[in-house]
């Protein structure tokens, strides 16, 4: 913890508060006055945090609240797992929170291999592989395009480049519904409507704003001398990108990959609009299994299917840890 050594330093640190123009309120005003009057001198007294008892009222309150909230957040996951391991008779008799008396993996097998969606009865496996075939090329293509965009915007500005970038960012806020049908027409014209490649194009388009922003900000933060030195050595647009920018930006590429895998895997709207039943991604298929009207509802199979669909983003999330947080916050906060 950085403790300020002198009164000057401390007052400097308080400059943010003392700065006039901040929203006025009584508390802030009083605080300001007292800082001016030198209450800071008191900060020269005993240093370090106040010693606390492990079971102070405050701690019990904080940990108690956090514990209750954590249970609330974990409960759905627990119910999913428990339900997916029970047989249907047990579900009809017991309550959803009780652990399974007899563990069975049958629902998982059924959800994966034989559950029916519409006419097909080959389970979620079809959707899983479709999702894989959608996600992998979409992640690669969208990141390739967006990183080159960001690089051009950061290092090779040309007339109008900022304008296109602004349109891109504003476009990120336009509801997708507005652009759904024009894209149907565009895809139909180039012969990709209904195919997986069409969906890959759509994901690359809609991933572009946030990723371009991400890469542009990152490349702009790299030392410019590096770029200039490479220019002097005669390196061109692509060789600087491939030999200098990409190797120096591995962390941001990882963040982008995490962002895109979860985003594209979890997509539902584009999947349902731009693909046909035999190329539906996993999310669409899950919805069809769970919400199909015909047949007896098999809640255990539904929950197994739900877990299977959520598994990929969950694994990515738990492996990536802090990088995931960085990924989702990166585009958001810097914007």
């Amino acid at each position: 913890m950085a403790t300020p050594q002198t009164l000057e330093q401390f007052q400097q640190k308080c400059a943010a508060v003392l700065r006039p123009g901040l929203r006025k309120n009584k508390e802030l005003e009083r605080f300001r006055v007292s800082v001016k009057n030198g209450n800071a001198l008191a900060a020269d007294g005993p240093r370090g945090p106040k010693p606390r008892h492990a079971f102070s009222k405050r701690n019990i309150f904080i940990y108690g609240t956090l514990f209750v909230v954590a249970v609330y957040y974990l409960l759905p996951l627990y119910v999913m797992v428990v339900t997916s391991l029970k047989g249907m008779p047990e579900i009809r008799l017991g309550n959803i929170f009780s652990p399974p008396m007899e563990i069975t993996f049958e629902p998982w097998v059924k959800a994966w291999a034989t559950a029916c969606t519409g006419l097909n009865c080959d389970g979620l496996s079809r959707g899983f592989w479709n999702s894989v075939r959608i996600t992998v090329p979409s992640v690669i293509l969208s990141i390739a395009i967006a990183s080159v965009n960001g690089y051009a915007l950061a290092n090779w500005r040309f007339k109008g480049s900022e304008l296109f970038f602004t349109i891109l960012i504003v476009g990120a806020f336009i509801p997708y519904q507005v652009m759904l049908y024009p894209i149907v027409i565009i895809l139909r014209e180039i012969g990709l409507y209904g195919s997986l490649s069409g969906l890959v194009v759509v994901h690359s388009i809609f991933g572009m704003p946030i990723l371009t922003l991400l890469f542009r900000n990152y490349f702009a933060s790299l030392p410019e001398e590096l770029f200039k030195a490479a220019r002097v050595d005669g390196a061109g647009f692509w060789s600087i990108y491939l030999r200098i920018m990409v190797p120096m930006s591995v962390p941001i590429f990882v963040v982008a990959v995490i962002l895109q895998i979860t985003g594209i895997w979890n997509d539902f709207l584009f999947g349902v609009v731009y693909t046909r039943p035999d190329t539906y991604p996993m999310t669409v298929q899950l919805n069809n299994i769970v919400n199909s009207v015909q047949g007896v509802k098999e809640y255990n199979v539904n929950m197994a299917a739900t877990l299977l669909t959520g598994l990929v983003p969950l694994i990515v999330y738990f492996i990536s840890g802090k990088l995931f947080v960085r990924g989702i916050a990166a585009g958001a906060v810097k914007g």
């Binding site: 909230v69 957040y73 979890n266 997509d267 539902f268 999310t283 919805n287 983003p313 999330y317």
Partner: peptide, 13 residues
């Protein structure tokens, strides 16, 4: 980690 994991899941799930 506990508070954020639902955000990794899709709206469908």
């Amino acid at each position: 980690t506990i508070f954020l994991y639902p955000f990794a899941l899709s709206f469908v799930v």
